[in-house]
Amino acid sequence: MTDESTGTKTADWSPLVPDADGTYAARFKDMRERCPVAWSDDFGGFWALTKHEDIVKACKDPGTFSSQQQFAVPHLDLGFPWLPLQSDPPDHGPYRQVLTPFLSKPRIQGFEPRLRELARALIEPLRERETFDASEEFAQPFAGEALCLALNIPEDMWSEFRSWTWNISTAFSTGNVPLILEVAASVRSYVEREIKDKTDNPGDDLMSAFLATRINGRSLTSTEIHGYYMLLTSAGHDTSANSLGHALHHLAHHPEHAARLRAEPELIPRAVEEIVRFYGPLIGLGRTCTKDIELRDRTIKAGEQVALVWAAAARDEDQFEDADTFVLDRPVTRSVSFGFGAHYCVGADLGRVQIAAAIREFLDAFSEFAPNGDVVRTIWPTQGFRSIPVRVPAVP
């Protein structure tokens, strides 16, 4: 709420205080009903849009809701743009296009057998144990390897790439800025080595594609390339790892759903869509408002931060029937969980295919699995898991 006489804002909520169960479902429901355009004093102050309709409109208006200054709340300026996310049209299109050939739907679908092989390789040592961590030992490493495969990252770099993804997701979920800086320095060193190597020995890998790219007639700078790799090691990995973690956590608590997917594996792609919608692995992304606007009787001023809260919009009762009910075979909906408009997730098809492949292999490997202790969740800006302890039947 804003005091019109003084311009002072009173906080409507805090993203640092989730619900008692560690999620945001009840809090976001209250916000949609009570103050769908909500103010928080955290991170320097920002507005949160929680209604599906408002978020779609904002995504269609990048001139007002700009990604160029920031793409996340809180804003983290490390001296490079996190591309292609931290850009606006018309530059956004060329920045995004360099990734499209690696992440196109036909190419990703062709990787499905290889993705299932990666999943089986990670599962095999787990089959010999009665307990393990489904996040740390399966979902997190699988998402990292799947991304490396899709982007043609050399296999001798997979281990280092996985360490980056793990550390940066840890840093974001704990607010550990020194760790982010450490990863950024390591990625910078890799980028500099690869630029030198691929300038002389181009191939069909990601770095060679970056070096061949032209934006407004010029080559990408090393700083821009650094930003691409930083985004890929964070958003490119974290959302898929979180979604897979939610899938395994849900199926552990709902064995009837696991049994149905084993019996009807053709439902797995629809289940993946519902998992992403219902659990909202990426809570939201940030924008900067470029001019004063009125939205639902709130005044958002030029220069203020705005969060598009995908996870709240994905349970908007005005958009989805039984929005707060998990429907395993829900018909595909117009959820904004993968984003919307120009910034619709370029890796959405990879996310869908890899999560489906991993679920299928996990269900094939374990006829039963159940929770085995407390999970460790992340909070804003992601809803994911650092740890998912599970128990499986002993091997005869």
Rank of each mutant, 00 (worst) to 15 (best):
D205I: 05
G203N: 09
L220Y: 09
I195L: 08
L232D: 00
H250Y: 15
E224N: 06
A212C: 15
D197K: 09
N242I: 01
N242D: 13
N242P: 13
S222I: 05
H226E: 06
H246P: 02
D197A: 07
L211Q: 13
T221M: 05
H246D: 03
D238F: 01
T223Q: 10
T199I: 14
N242K: 04
S222L: 02
R214N: 07
T233M: 03
T223M: 09
L244T: 00
D204Q: 12
D204L: 15
F210W: 08
A247P: 06
Y228S: 02
H246N: 10
H249S: 10
T221D: 07
G217C: 13
H246F: 11
L206W: 02
G203W: 05
H226Y: 14
K196Q: 15
I195Y: 05
Y228N: 01
L231Q: 01
D205K: 08
H246L: 12
A209Q: 06
T213G: 07
S243I: 01
G203S: 12
Y228G: 00
T221L: 04
N201E: 09
S243R: 01
H250I: 12
A235E: 02
T199G: 10
A235F: 00
D197P: 03
F210H: 10
I225F: 08
L206R: 00
L232F: 01
Y228M: 02
L211R: 10
T223R: 07
G236L: 06
A212Q: 14
D204F: 06
T213V: 12
L220F: 09
T233H: 11
G217S: 14
A241Y: 00
D238K: 00
L231T: 00
A247Q: 04
N201T: 13
H237E: 02
S222F: 08
E224M: 12
A212T: 13
T233G: 04
T239S: 13
D204H: 11
M207F: 13
G203E: 10
R218G: 06
F210N: 06
D238L: 02
H250E: 05
G217K: 03
L211K: 14
I215G: 11
S243H: 03
I215W: 07
A247C: 09
T233D: 00
L211M: 12
P202T: 05
A241R: 01
S219H: 10
D204Y: 13
N201L: 13
L206T: 01
L220R: 06
K198D: 09
P202G: 07
K198F: 10
S240C: 03
R218Q: 13
L232H: 00
T199Y: 09
R214G: 13
T213Q: 09
D238P: 00
S222P: 12
T223W: 05
M230L: 15
N216G: 12
D204P: 10
N242W: 00
D197M: 11
D200H: 14
G227W: 07
G203R: 14
N201D: 06
L248H: 02
H237Q: 04
G227T: 04
H246K: 08
G227A: 07
A247I: 09
I215Q: 08
K198M: 06
H226F: 11
S240K: 06
L206A: 04
H249D: 08
N201G: 11
N216S: 15
K196A: 12
S240T: 15
L232K: 01
I215E: 08
S208M: 10
M230H: 02
S234I: 07
T213H: 07
H246A: 09
D238A: 04
K198Q: 14
S240R: 04
L220P: 09
H250C: 14
L248F: 06
